[in-house]
Design a binder for these strands. Structure first.
Lengths: 156, 156
DNA sequence: TATTGTTATACTCTATAACTATA
DNA sequence: TATAGTTATAGAGTATAACAATA
């Protein structure tokens, strides 16, 4: 069993964070950490990270998509996509099928198991997002999304 | 020189992102990536990541701070703080001085060089944040910060 | 007994550069 | 020549568990 001395926390007077809490970048980072933690709580049992979930969603929405195009949509280098896709394929959620008319490429598809798992994951994500929205207050969710998508443009 | 074949991009019809753009978590992640990229552009010459910058800010605001307390404030495990602090100390920006009255602990301080570099970094961060705010529109910066800090509480 | 800092170690995620097979 | 996928490799960044020194 682990040594219980590793989990202790030092308390005491508060530590000043200086200018950090006033920075958008800092608050976005904290929000991301908190969201990631709750996402994990919501989907941990399905063994899906936000990244893998996103890949499944995109493949479902674009049957037969080629890897390069998926990498672009997910903002990954195509080499970074390979291990993620290997994982999903090894779990029987995604298949690399031959792309018609191009023997270099694969067309990606969800398997039946992939469709089923994704359906469960989507429901969990919606619950997670609802919790998140509840903390924000009525109607502020769309506002937050609008503000975020206005940061440094070029995003969707 | 690198093989120029690695930088090419596939274009074509747009790839659908399904439900992703409507998720707060997705938009936060994109915003974070965009912010990180611009932060790097703004502070890259100073060789400071958002994480290292944050550590310097906190140490400056709390002279003599102990490592455990800094780790807590930066939301890092104390073991994760060690390599970051080693880096800052090796660059002559931070010193581990003896903590008065506790021979186990160090008190952290910025060096003169650390103070000077941080001053430059703060100006760069303010410019970076101003660019960010400009994209949002007048007055929306505070609103965004308020919304973000309302996500899953417990943050400051 | 508990805390402070450190180490050894490992894991996730991502990228760069180069390779292969096709086009 | 250019593109699709893969590999080898490396680098951040972080955590867990254990340890010595000290409280």
């Amino acid at each position: 069993m682990p040594d219980p001395r590793n989990k202790r926390r030092a308390a005491g007077e508060p530590v000043s964070l200086g200018m950090l809490p006033g920075l958008v970048g800092y608050q976005v980072r904290l929000a991301q950490m908190a969201i990631f933690t709750d996402f994990d709580r919501a989907l941990g049992a399905l063994e899906l990270s936000p990244g893998l979930f996103g890949l499944l969603v995109i493949v479902e929405a674009n049957p037969g998509l080629k890897q390069s195009r998926l990498a672009g949509a997910a903002r990954l280098d195509r080499s970074s996509l390979v291990p993620a896709l290997n994982k999903l394929e090894a779990r029987g959620l995604v298949t690399r099928r031959d792309a018609p008319g191009d023997r270099r490429a694969y067309g990606l598809h969800l398997t039946a198991a992939g469709v089923a798992l994704l359906a469960r994951a989507k429901r969990a994500v919606r619950r997670h997002e609802a919790r998140l929205a509840a903390g924000l207050g009525e109607g502020k969710r769309d506002l937050l999304i609008a503000l975020l998508s206005g940061i440094f443009r070029d995003r969707r």
